[in-house]
Design a protein around this nucleic acid. Sequence first.
DNA 1: CGCATATCTAAACAATCGTTTAGATTTAAT
DNA 2: ATTAAATCTAAACGATTGTTTAGATATGCG
Lengths: 185, 185
Amino acid sequence: MPRTKNYNENEVIEKAMNLFWKNGYETTSMQMLEKEMGINKFSIYASFGNKNGVFLESIKCYKLKLNTLISKLEASTNGLNGIKTYFYDFLTFSKENNCSKGCLITNTANEIGDDADQQIKNALSSFTNTVREVFVNVLKKENHNTVAEQQADYLIVAMFGLSSASRVFNASQLNNYIENIFKNL
Amino acid sequence: MPRTKNYNENEVIEKAMNLFWKNGYETTSMQMLEKEMGINKFSIYASFGNKNGVFLESIKCYKLKLNTLISKLEASTNGLNGIKTYFYDFLTFSKENNCSKGCLITNTANEIGDDADQQIKNALSSFTNTVREVFVNVLKKENHNTVAEQQADYLIVAMFGLSSASRVFNASQLNNYIENIFKNL
DNA sequence: CGCATATCTAAACAATCGTTTAGATTTAAT
DNA sequence: ATTAAATCTAAACGATTGTTTAGATATGCG
């Protein structure tokens, strides 16, 4: 056996993920990734195939990070209020230096077109469906099925909107938005 | 006086605007613009300076198109219902081949970073402020000032979210979203 | 008409994109 | 210690980016 890698793939992917999150897919160049990940282009290609591969792994990494919030949401027993907490938790989660980066998934969905890579598109919709499913499960604890499905549909769109809006509007506007979303649901 | 231009600047900008709307700023290349606008790169640069110039004019063109909906909204006398109609009108406006392109302004806000061109950033926030102002004026017809401001804040965030979400979710989910937004306001 | 000047085409510009390759360096096993 | 194989650096790849330039073409005015 010859020499071993002197970098940890999980560590460098987390750095890549943060770069994609902040700048988007297109804007993030291999040059920037090289610098941020701290390894050479050759090593990046050896570990992840290509830029798309780095991005797909970054999405996995992002999901893993968000799982903390999702788990908390799944464990919640007070229905709508649990989801509302998730909305606020997300805002905190997405903030860096008091400036929101939005959601990596939502940002990507907003950026890509129909001709984008199928694996990426699959990853995005699978994530959205998963979150919606969690909403449904939480809501079923206090509602009957049809209402839960309808409310979940509403909330997943609202969550998507919040992710986008968080990159543009200020905290008071966003809080006002969340409060109104849940006011008379 | 020598030969005259054999293209109309307003006409070619409308074509450019549609390209930016569909594909975003970065993805739209000068090559694509050349083809879509039907004129040579030289002519584009002669008329609009650079890519950024084409984009700024495209935003003006977009605002002009949207003015039809804004004017209708301004003229409405039934408050919240007028705004709700505007939400639905926007969905129709943004659709092409039964597929929503979202809002050019919102799409751009989602795409660009902090280091983007200042003129573009100004154009985006000025647009958002204008729409919010119209919301306030419509709401003041049936509410007192503080409520109108607060509701307008809520609705402008909701509108931004709708624009983003319209590129991802289906008609029934979007309608459900709009109905819930206005349900108990 | 003929001159002047703006518009046109088309080629070239430097810079950067994502990706690949060649060669030096390091290390585990023999 | 030698060898084999994988990782590293660094340079180069062709393609495409936004932008500029040179030269041909067309047209309004004296």
